[in-house]
Amino acid sequence: MRTKEILTWLVLVYTGLVLQSTVFSTLTIFGAKPDFLLVMVVLVGILQGHQSAARKGFVIGLLEDVFVGRLIGSNALVKAIVGFLTGQVEKEIIKENVLISIFMVWVFSVIHNLLYGLLLVILGLGSTLGLDFLRTLFTFAFFNAFLALILFPFLYYLLIKGPLRVKSKP
């Protein structure tokens, strides 16, 4: 990975974490707020495939966990899985279609939260699969879909043509 690429990712993650802890924390509806980093992981999956998305999902999630300071590894694990799953549809969809990408963000946001809730239940850290959880789940998914609409052109450029593009092997 090139230095420029690493720096770009760091700037993106830093910006995402700052936004999530400040601006997005004021946009809470039904306890849900948008997840900038998850949207990034899903779009990486759609635009660059499952391997790249799983790896980046893991690193991004781990950085998020360290930043939060609680349940370190949970976001790393779930975002890696979501990245891997998103990447599975890479070849099945038209990448340039922004509406499909937004729909994918909505679907994988739901999957992300279901997985996260399931993980907590398995580890005995919560019983989150109630009605409130479902309401938060769908609000969260809509939030992320809306955020994806804004981020898509920017991330599309970075991931396909810009410094974050994946070099094809000779």
Partner: peptide, 9 residues
């Protein structure tokens, strides 16, 4: 990851 979650929970 599981150990990390446990440790930081």
């Amino acid at each position: 990851c599981i150990l990390g979650i446990r440790y930081s929970s």
